[in-house]
Nucleic acid binder design. Structure first.
Lengths: 109, 109
DNA sequence: CTGATACTTAAGTAAGAACTTAAGTAATGG
DNA sequence: CCATTACTTAAGTTCTTACTTAAGTATCAG
């Protein structure tokens, strides 16, 4: 099953380590070692998380010399935000309609 | 590892079947059978998805007679949206600072 | 009462996720 | 050069997830 952009984005954000990495990258670019520093896990573990973030399109990285520099890529974050926003709007619109309906009941001709 | 509210929310939203269920519930309450109808999976499969949505706090359900009615619970959706929003704001603020810095370079006294 | 309907419970399986350790390679600083 | 530093690759383990089928238990309609 080829996962959609939203599948990959939400899946990537579901892990606390990966969310912390995204939080770090929100404050500016970082090397792999920088990203790894706050965590108690091995470096290959961090790199695996990074790969998941990259294949979700949330992060981009490039290597210069022996240092790989990672940066946040905000578009996909926007896509996820938009999906949630749409759901909430659906829900709010429904409450409005219900309100209108209740108004008609309490407001006879 | 006890998962946080955001872990549970993003994990729940990472599955396309569950997102479709949330989309459906955004348009109004539904029974378990209603929710199951669009999908090619078994009813117990649907109920398992529903449990995940409920324990993430995204959906609430109650049983009347033999029918369980499910509704969207928008607060946790708001929590997830807020987290994403915060990351984007961090990122945008950084670009602003960079812009200011570049302005000072191009604007000598 | 009886047979459908609407779930519910239990148990099993196959694939995926999140690590690990061990052993690389490839730049750099001295 | 040569030892660090900064990753990279490979492979193995364990836990979780997303299903499945089979066999329940309450309702409700006639």
């Amino acid at each position: 099953m080829t996962a959609s952009a939203l599948d990959l984005a939400f899946q990537a954000l579901a892990d606390p380590t990966r969310r912390a990495m995204v939080e770090r990258l929100g404050r500016g670019p970082a090397s792999v070692s920088d990203l790894a520093e706050p965590f108690a896990i091995s470096l290959p573990g961090v790199v695996q998380h990074l790969k998941i973030l990259e294949s979700a399109g949330l992060v981009r990285s490039e290597k210069a010399g022996r240092v790989r520099t990672c940066r946040l890529e905000p578009q996909v974050l926007g896509l996820a935000e938009q999906w949630i926003n749409d759901r909430r709007h659906d829900w709010e619109r429904r409450l409005d309609c219900l309100g209108d309906y209740l108004d008609t009941l309490g407001d006879p001709p």
